[in-house]
């Protein structure tokens, strides 16, 4: 599983192997209980993205390329946004207004229990997907891509 050629030392990799799943799980918890406890889609999404960033930092980009390739990240990001908009849009048809919480209107639920939020947990999941994929993409692009301008090329040619 571990590749000695890329990434950081064996110690970092071993520790990362242990904790990456827990970080991701904690992110999921923050997202799913966003309507009951502090946190929510954005905070949870950032934590979930942090787990992928940790993997990328310790193992190098090859492993994240396999785990979460760029096309899949883009797909997850767009899907998150579309899911959020879809939930808001369904409110027009089933709840009587844009963003109306139609599930809560229909099923109610006891306050402070998991199933009391109606559409809010779904929206939180949507935001989390968007933020996770978006933040990871930002990190990925900033750390692996470099803009090379024509001026830079001519400068290096001059130096040679």
């Amino acid at each position: 599983m571990t590749n000695n050629k890329s990434g950081l030392s064996e110690i970092v990799k071993s520790v990362c192997c242990w904790i990456e799943g827990f970080i991701f799980l904690f992110g999921c918890y923050i997202v799913l209980f966003g309507h009951l406890t502090p946190g929510g889609g954005f905070a949870g999404g950032v934590i979930m993205a942090a787990s992928f960033i940790l993997i990328m930092l310790s193992f190098g980009k090859e492993r994240t390329d396999k785990l979460f390739p760029r096309t899949r990240t883009t797909l997850v990001e767009s899907f998150g946004a579309l899911l959020f908009i879809a939930v808001a849009w369904l409110g027009i048809y089933y709840g009587g207004g844009f963003f109306a919480n139609f599930l809560h209107q229909k099923f109610g639920g006891t306050p402070f229990t998991f199933l009391s939020g109606g559409t809010i947990p779904i929206s939180n999941v949507a935001i989390a997907l968007k933020v996770m994929a978006g933040l990871f993409l930002v990190f990925y692009v900033l750390s692996t891509h470099k803009v090379i301008l024509d001026e830079d090329i001519s400068k290096t040619e001059k130096d040679k």
């Binding site: 883009t74 990001e77 767009s78 899907f79 946004a81 579309l82 908009i85 879809a86 849009w89 844009f98």
Partner: peptide
Amino acid sequence: LIPLAGAFLVVF
């Protein structure tokens, strides 16, 4: 709603 959904639909 329409342009916002359209923007992400294009990428998707």
